[in-house]
Design a protein around this nucleic acid. Structure first.
Lengths: 245, 245
DNA sequence: CGTTTCAATATGTATATACATAATCGCCAT
DNA sequence: ATGGCGATTATGTATATACATATTGAAACG
């Protein structure tokens, strides 16, 4: 079987296809944690490609934490999890795609209203004013990955009032429009309430990671957002070096 | 120049070396944003390796967002590492006292041993060596506030072998002695297992926030520590201002 | 019966090679 | 000038191959 040269004239590369195939099976639960996935040579036969190509894909999955590789034993499914650097702008699409999964976004609710007391507390807003409240879900493959609850201060971003946020998620939309000057994250663990449990398709009471982010632009509150992730699906990573001016 | 086979008999792999060399130059500012880094074929000559090896390293850097690759033009350094160290180093005593509560520390277990495979994985330690494993509890008033599991690399901090850590917690002890050059935090939510539940006096299965920190001093792993907090007791806060970029 | 040794096996890393693809440069004809 | 076109160039992806390394299971040994 010589077959020199490139195959990838069609759609995505083989590398990508292997990656997403396997991620999909793991995330969907078809291959449960602990399950031994096929050996490199088996996959190379199955996909009709070289072991190197399979190796690169599996190595990437291992680095992403989806599988664990043991010499002589094979590769095993770990508990699915993803990582995001705390310091980086949260873009869930990029996170999901880094796992080799299809990203899908869904806007569940949208309401324009005069800020409630709770809204004002979240935004640290002194006076009442119009806000846009949004509720969204982010999917990785078929599975819900994150739940988003957001309040946007329309006094700071009036053009958001005309945006439906059906095609684009509010995060990327805002980043392209509003230069933020300061942000604050609050990170904590909570038990899923019924609403969140339903949205994320997990059991009520299951542990979740909540990341709340509040953003200011030139002293004016812009938005408050709360992301909720199922515990197994998410790890935040922050890396620093102290000595850097 | 045939030179078949592997070179990497010494320490780290070439792949790793190329990766860290280039990251280092970018992070340090030696290669400013917009700077064109050497072509793949130049680097392969410089490191005396094949283009494939360089390609894999550069692809990884591109995926990490450090560089941008343009066909026919070369690879360019992207926006400056905007990361200003953000998450504050936890000193649990200070946190507890800021709440107006009495702080108490308790060392539950201490074991000097040759690093297990798990220890080495936690520390990202290549070779086996002596480590000190500790388990402690931190109290706020009468209630347990945080559970601490720590592994100290005795090769990096030999004087820790003689410390009992009965009167002083390992965190403050290490900070005063070892200048850390790099740290990585991993933050996630978990359900309390029986051991943790007993230590924190909460129900098994209750959501907990886990903060793991790994510290290096001049490339040498120093310590890995895992703090577990009962969900209600703890919120992490990180604040940033985007640096010029 | 326990221990030591060794071969088999799966992954890890590197090589050389081949061809695809995209961007750019310079040449040429209009 | 200038617009198109092919040659050049750097990266992208895949191949086949080679040897290293870690682990395991079974055979050999004390």
């Amino acid at each position: 079987m010589s077959m020199t040269g490139t195959i990838g004239t069609e759609g995505g590369s083989l590398h990508q296809r292997i990656l997403s195939d396997i991620s999909e099976r793991i995330m969907s639960g078809a291959w449960a944690p602990g399950h031994r996935i096929p050996f490199e040579h088996e996959l190379s036969t199955q996909y009709n490609c070289s072991r190197m190509t399979v190796n690169k894909a599996l190595s990437q999955l291992a680095k992403a934490g989806l599988i664990e590789r043991r010499r002589r034993s094979g590769s095993f499914v770990r508990r699915p999890q993803s990582q995001a650097a705390v310091l980086e702008i949260h873009d869930i699409r990029i996170e999901v795609e880094a796992l080799g999964l299809a990203y899908r976004y869904e806007r569940a609710a949208r309401q324009k209203r005069l800020s409630s007391a709770e809204d004002r507390a979240l935004l640290e807003l002194g006076v009442a004013g119009p806000v846009l409240a949004l509720e969204c879900r982010h999917f990785a493959g078929e599975r819900p990955f994150a739940h988003e609850q957001r309040v946007i201060n329309l006094a700071a971003v009036p053009e958001a009032a005309d945006e439906e946020f059906l095609a684009i998620a509010p995060g990327p939309w805002l980043i392209g429009r509003v230069p933020w000057s300061e942000a604050e994250h609050r990170i904590r663990a909570v038990a899923a309430d019924r609403h969140i449990a339903a949205a994320l398709d997990i059991a009520a009471g299951a542990p979740c990671l909540v990341v709340e982010r509040r953003t200011w632009s030139a002293e004016h509150p812009v938005t408050h957002v709360r992301f909720t992730y199922a515990a197994e699906s998410h790890t935040l990573v922050a890396r620093f070096t102290p000595s850097k001016g």
